[in-house]
Design a protein around this nucleic acid. Sequence first.
DNA 1: GCCAACGTTGGC
DNA 2: GCCAACGTTGGC
Length: 151
Amino acid sequence: MHYWLMKSEPGEFSIDDFAKAPGKKTTWFGVRNYLARNFMRDQMQLGDLAFFYHSSCEVPGIAGIVEICKLAHPDLTQFDAKSDYYDAKATPEKPRWFNVDVKLVKKTRLLPLSELREHKKLAGMQLLQRGNRLSITPVDPADWKFILSLL
DNA sequence: GCCAACGTTGGC
DNA sequence: GCCAACGTTGGC
């Protein structure tokens, strides 16, 4: 059992889009970073929980809690020549990119990045590190608990 | 296998 | 729109 933080740009897919999705489920396609892929493919387990985070927007921050509801499987967009996420070097026999499916557990209040930064306890969080750009990061169980208490 | 150039991310 | 950080590419 692990905890995670997964970034999404609300302009692409927001917490409200998520709430409207059939079954409140979505496929986390489009990750094209090897470290983030490895987290999904090698470490995410059914029932793992993650914070749903709004990035690249007016007020970046945590917007909800989601659950991993399907283990990593090949990201179909890598085979689609019309997709922005197309990868010419990937084949169905040798897929390069994977995604999990996630289910919305609940929408929370928006907990802004600026507020997370105010808590010294959270200073070690990967999200808060200088230059962090990874779209999926592990969250320490103690940090997870503490953040839950802020929501 | 090194490393400079380039592209992308994402907060501000 | 700016720019720091960092990942990827490609020449050698």
